[in-house]
Amino acid sequence: METTLVENLPQVTWVGSLIKAVLILAVISAIAGFGTFIERKVLAFMQRRLGPMHVGPYGLLQLIADGIKLFTKEDIVPQNANKLIFMVAPAITAATAFVALSAVPVFPDFTIPEFIPLLGGIFVPSIASDLNIGILFVLGMMAAGLYGPLLAGMSQANKWGIIGAARTAIQFLSYEVVTGLSILAPIMLVGSLSFVDFNNAQSGGIGSWLIWQQPVAFVLFLIAGFAETNRTPFDLLEHEAEVVSGYATEYSGMRWGMFFIGEYANMITISIIAAIVFLGGYSEGGLGWLTIILKVGFFFFLMLWVRAAWPHVRPDQLMWLCWKVLMPIAVINVVITGIVMMV
């Protein structure tokens, strides 16, 4: 698709960026809500159940029922909690998740048709802000998002919360190294930190996808991504069987909902990063945007699939895995990549 070439693009105005930002907020929030429904359905089918069936056709309106419940539920702040931090913490998770999304290409770029009053003719870019260090920015913002669970757990004066916060800290310190090192090898191959460059480097069809050159980095990045989004094999933070609900124990209503909007937005971000960095991104032939939606959908489904198939790990197992297994493999992978590039 030649629309991805920068020189062919119309000028991006601030109105275009603003429209893009509003679009990302609205659509990703909606997808995050819909994601909970899909998750329940997929898990149910994998466990030979039906899942939500009663509200609306095939349980589809369950989403609206859940939304009404979340919005109208009483917002409780525990007596001994640090009230300010307790109330701010969910906003950190949700906000950083969306800030991270501002630097990834989410939907195709398009120009608003002329017949629409006021906004006609405005070009809306595919990336809200096309930083040339996009990957680092997204990973950094997603890392900052873990302050949400951490502060939530520490401020709520609840022992389960404190344990959840402590687990957040160790999980963060464990996976972050693996994420950085695993994505370093593809960055070395492409020689850029921009998502657009990654996409262009793999525009030669399936054979040029980076996954064939960097299968190890791909697997490592996926594992670290699961830890980053608190998906099941590594969802220590709110592991019901061990720590009630971890950092979210005292939360109710929309504050609790914001944690989950953030979590689902992060899942989408990780899926998009994996699809662009390793699976060729969005430009092959004319159907690039359909293929990236399929790729992102596949990764989203993979996260649900793994949740249905695998048990949780213990915190010490997570640290063992990250520091003693994944990190050495990632370092060896980077060294081998360097040697191959030099020779």
């Binding site: 900052a144 873990l146 951490l150 520490m154 404190i162 916060a165 800290a169």
Partner: peptide, 12 residues
Amino acid sequence: VGAVMALYSFAM
């Protein structure tokens, strides 16, 4: 972000 997170764990 990483460094202050480590500091938090000590505070905890």
